[in-house]
Nucleic acid binder design. Structure first.
Length: 275
DNA sequence: TACAGTCTAGGTTGAGCTGG
DNA sequence: CCAGCTCAACCTAGACTGTA
């Protein structure tokens, strides 16, 4: 893919980024969970059923690393369908219908494999070393840009993909990354996986998103041109100004206030939210 | 303080489409 | 015809706001 950013001083210095479609590098989950699983909200290890990311709950999914929120209990006489889904288990998950005004994370990562039964679908990689760089890409501004371009925008502030459109979503071709780039991606993820990010519509003022962008470009993609790095801020501001992303929302997210509210109401959240 | 209306986020539903 | 999937409308629940 050719990366041509606004305000890039040297337009002829086109930056090359390896791009492919999601279906080239991963296997997606299946739609239609009716008649396969029923949901039990709450998740503790060693309980019945399969760990899953059933609900999109943006307040407790602010960092790239997330916890399973529910258990999927197989319904009787659906063994084949259940097995089909268990076979597509993965640690990487993709939110197909994020609200840009609420969600911070498009590609969610669970420490252990979990099922994505509905709108947060499984993305299973054959090579587990590809999981982390892909997660970084999807949550970067460039990943958001690809999602936004490719998604249905009928509802302001919400970018809809379905399984078939997610298959053809332009994405980073992680197969092209060198061993060094893969190792760097692991290190970046270690540093950033616990950090909370602002909703996507506020990416222009989010220090964590900026750091993610900078590290991804320089350490994984090998882009060190200053003009390119500066142009990323312009791209972030343009995305934030886009009506189909901000959806007319005025109020801003306050991560500290949000955390205080979670505590006040005893809503469980990942323990790394408190540093 | 009580109430009603509105906003926001996100899940569910069921008709309908399509390729095998 | 069937399985798998999409689409858009609809539903729910909680938060917020205005008013008396």
């Amino acid at each position: 893919g050719r990366l041509e950013l606004p305000l890039q001083a040297l337009q002829e210095a086109v930056t090359e980024i390896p791009i492919c479609q999601v279906e080239d590098i991963a296997t997606l989950g299946l739609a239609e969970v009716r008649g396969v699983f029923r949901k039990v909200e709450s998740f503790q290890p060693n309980e019945d059923g399969y760990a899953c990311l059933w609900n999109a709950k943006s307040e407790v999914q602010r960092s790239m690393l997330v916890l399973p929120d529910s258990r999927a209990i197989p319904v009787p006489n659906a063994e084949t369908k259940v097995q089909n889904r268990v076979d597509r288990n993965s640690r990487t998950h993709y939110n197909m219908v994020p609200r840009f005004t609420a969600c911070s994370i498009i590609a969610l990562f669970t420490e252990q494999s979990a099922i994505g039964p509905t709108l947060i679908t499984n993305v299973a990689f054959e090579n587990s070393r590809h999981e982390i760089p892909w997660t970084l890409w999807c949550n970067s501004t460039l990943g958001l840009f690809c999602h936004w371009l490719h998604s249905g925008k009928q509802t302001a502030g919400r970018g809809k993909l379905r399984l078939t459109t997610l298959r053809t979503l332009p994405t980073l071709d992680v197969r092209e990354l060198s061993d060094e780039a893969l190792a760097n991606a692991d290190a970046i993820f270690e540093r950033l996986k616990y950090k909370r990010m602002l909703p996507l519509n506020e990416c222009a003022r989010d220090p964590v998103r900026k750091e993610l962008d900078r590290c991804l470009l320089t350490e994984v993609l090998g882009i060190t041109n200053d003009d390119v790095l500066k142009s990323m801020q312009t791209l972030r501001e343009m995305l934030c100004a886009e009506p189909s992303i901000h959806g007319g929302k005025q109020s801003k997210c306050d991560l500290d206030a949000e955390l205080a509210k979670l505590k006040l109401k005893s809503i469980p959240f990942p323990n790394w939210y408190v540093e």
